[in-house]
Write a protein that binds this DNA or RNA. Structure first.
Lengths: 206, 206
DNA sequence: CTTTTATGAATGAAGG
DNA sequence: CCTTCATTCATAAAAG
């Protein structure tokens, strides 16, 4: 059964600026926001429960544990299936990524040498990784984050939307941090939570 | 296990109606929408993978299957867990493409930042486009062009350097060479994360 | 509608 | 740090 919201994207598109250069934004009502929160929350809960179930299983059945050992250890979450035929470049596992992101968010934009080692050790518990990988990751993360800023910056023509973001400490995700995308299909889009295809799963095509 | 959703929402409140009786709603930027999609998508993917894993386990251990049977059949979980992806990508209009191609052909293979802005402005007259789009286009164009060169011109100039992995000397891109990620198998099952609170969602105009 | 191809976008790594 | 390149992923468009 599909979730309701997929069929009920009832946000409206409003033009913030009255002139023809105005920007269109998605509008959500409080209720919709709440629903979203609920749904995400549900996912979180489910995930936790499933993980617990999995733990129970593997702890009670060595055989199963072994069998799936190399599968759940990280591949479970090994995101998009990629060939195991000698990957040339490191790809962070979701867990590693999450950790990296959280560290990045902590504002310590200064990845010191020692810090790198520290982080690397930590991440090694969740998959192969090297200090260079960590170093590069932070460099790239920083650079790209910054670039996004400057791209979205050209907001001289201030709109009616007061940029009253009272989160000066937030340095990465800016509200106006989006870019225009051509949308040839003027049809209702809103929350396009669709299901094109579940593809890219854990199909490790070796 | 919760993600940063709680901290992300930086929507602004705007009054949809100009008059003082207007309703206040939350506004989400495309960026935020994208973040949301990503997060939900992650949950969906993880859930699906966990379910798959669970299936593998239970198929080998009836006991475990029974044990967990009433657990995953919980009202919480009802059907379809799917990936929610809603990214849409920019598609250049013929006119834009024409201009881009001509610029590319002018040999100025070095699209500087200022140049990008310039080009973007130009192309904006022929359809929606962003600097990032232009940047990406040139990056891709050059890469593709270069690749074609090396493929169509297998000059023996550099002897046996083709001791590469895989088969780079293969005629252009060979689809069969790399992984197939499509699996159009119509699956009408899986998990569904339903919640009493969710079901009576936003469709009720209350 | 399903499968394949073309190509926009994301990102790890290297160079300066 | 910033820019550039190479490879990969995902999806719109085309082909069947």
């Amino acid at each position: 059964m599909m979730m309701e919201w997929e069929k009920q994207p009832q946000q409206e598109e409003v033009m913030v600026n009255g002139n023809n250069n105005g920007i269109f934004v998605k509008v959500m009502t409080d209720e919709q926001m709440e629903v979203l929160r609920e749904q995400i929350s549900v996912y979180a809960t489910i995930c936790e429960q499933l993980v617990e179930m999995h733990k129970s299983l593997t702890s009670h059945h060595d055989l199963a544990g072994v069998r799936l050992g190399n599968l759940y250890c990280d591949p479970l979450v090994t995101s998009v299936g990629h060939k195991i035929t000698g990957r040339q470049r490191w790809t962070p596992t979701p867990v590693q990524l999450q950790i990296l992101e959280s560290i990045f968010d902590q504002g310590n934009g200064t990845p010191s040498k020692q810090k790198i080692k520290d982080i690397t050790s930590e991440l090694l518990q969740h998959g192969q990784i090297s200090e260079t990988n960590v170093y590069n990751w932070f460099q790239n993360r920083r650079a790209r984050s910054k670039r996004k800023q400057q791209v979205s910056a050209p907001n001289n023509a201030e709109s009616e939307v007061e940029t009253e973001v009272e989160s000066p400490n937030e340095k990465k995700t800016k509200p106006e941090d989006f870019q225009f995308q051509q949308n040839p299909a003027p049809r209702a889009e809103g929350l396009c939570f669709q299901n094109p295809q579940m593809s890219s799963g854990m199909d490790s095509t070796d």
